[in-house]
Design a binder for these strands. Sequence first.
RNA 1: UGCCCGGUGGUGUAGCGGUAGCACGUCAGCCUUUGGAGCUGUAAGCCCUGGUUCGAGCCCAGGCCGGGCAGCCA
Length: 568
Amino acid sequence: MTSVDSGTSADFIRSVIAEDLRTDKYGGRVVTRFPPEPNGYLHIGHAKSICLNFGVAAEHPGGVCHLRFDDTNPTREDMEFVDSIQEDVRWLGFDWQDHLYYASDYFEQLYALAEQLIRSGLAYVDSLTAEEIRDFRGTLTEPGRNSPYRERSLEENLDLFQRMRAGEFEDGRHVLRAKIDMASPNMNLRDPTLYRIRRVPHQRTGDAWRIYPMYDFAHGLSDSIEKVTHSLCTLEFEDHRPLYDWFLDSLEVYHPQQIEFARLNLTHTVLSKRKLRHLVEQGCVSGWDDPRMPTLSGLRRRGYTPRSIRKFCDRVGVAKRDTVVEMALLEHCLREDLNQHAPRVMGVLRPLKLIIDNYPEGQTEEFEAVNNPEDPSMGTRLIPFSRALYIEEDDFREDPPSKFYRLAPGKEVRLRYAYLVTCVAVVKDEQTGDVVEVHCTYDPDSRGGTAPDGRRVRGTLHWVTEADSVAAEVRLYDHLFSQPNPDEDTDGGDVPADLNPNSLEILQQCRVEPGLGEATPGSIYQFERQGYFVVDNADSKPGGLVFNRAVSLRDTWAKIQQAQKNPA
RNA sequence: UGCCCGGUGGUGUAGCGGUAGCACGUCAGCCUUUGGAGCUGUAAGCCCUGGUUCGAGCCCAGGCCGGGCAGCCA
């Protein structure tokens, strides 16, 4: 039932629903809806709404959540988006069963309702131009004025409206408006527009209509037609609720309850279709599904799991104050999920050759590695070992700082699952002075990684063999914006100032353990000691592996270094 | 400057007149064949001023601050 029963407290919306159930306001029904306009891709902000609407419905026996496309504006909508939206909602893990609807399915009913409003003397055809209407509307502090067409006769209104439908007038010639109150302090009630002429084909109704209903008229009445009980929307529609109610009451039809909640905001990114579109169009990202994008398709390609996103939406909660959630929480939710479920592998991002001088040339052996220490049922695998290996460049320092537990001249470390090795020499590039090869000796008695005498070895390094490892490209992603709250507008038309220039780093020379050769797109691994990486679902091919870093592991060493750099 | 909504640690969120809690983040420690994970601990909060009350984060009044609204967009 409600989450109250499970020990956690209900948010204000669930409380309202629980109360409505208690008073039997809707005959025990719970019907919600997720109403996207098919004019763009879904993002993490929509996920909050999806989780809320579908979540609330699922919490009650018989509860359902409709997926309804608010396709009332053919000039900006496209079927391409209705497909991607359905895909994303399904991917997130929700099911609308057979409740897939389109506002355009109701055009005929909505038209009849509009005529009914006219007959009740509550709507009229206005023939002012768009500019005149704006002018007559008044301002936030001054009342508007009545349109000279406001008192047209019922017959004339009906006739005009029917001819609007018939396509007799060009765009903008007339509109249908509600007759409410041009002096209302609520701008939405100053005779809002109900229908406008748009002589363009609609993606679903084709040439059937020359007039299309506006959001306020279509939305609430669609809710009513579908017998929605709770119509959950974001805060900016709060001022629209009196209008929502006005239509329902004036037409004396079934009356759902609109409830508003705060939309999601996230640090280090932007969350509006307009701004996201800008990033795509300016080429700041590779597309709507760029792994840095907060779109669901971007997050999916980045390696985010549906479960982690649902968990995130859960933790973010639902309330009315508008807030900005830290990206760190989203990342935490991903780590938490992947720690539990992602298989561990070894992958070297920046390879440095390591030769074990006393390990026989040509000899190889295998070690058993644990696939997931958090989940023994995931079993083990065998990984090959030999004389020539690669380790991470960062794991060797010729002149190690304090607290550096990794490899350095004379120091001993453990090669994960394999042997303890001690650095005995380095080979440098004569030109640059860079260390290009590290030489070690191994302790044959430390097979598996434990010292026979119990001596303590703090550092454990991941590695791959030179011969068996597989080449891969790895894309390292970071926040799209360097500031937590990016500069609001990018009106100039080019790249936003706060765009993080280091949000993508491509590594071409990576080596991963042999088993990854047949990794399939979309599968996610933990590269031990580094982070979680997903096989890119667009660019990875057999023989041309591409991994995206979803999120790094918590990096304590990085913090220590940071502290050493900035004492205080 | 009209109307509407909202202000609880750095962030998000509980608390419904009776000891201000949880999570993320921070810092410290423990543990560790991932400097991962885990565990323990630490610091940090009711916008302000009055009022009602034995008692106010919660109720009332007045301020202050933040957000939304003037599409033939949604």
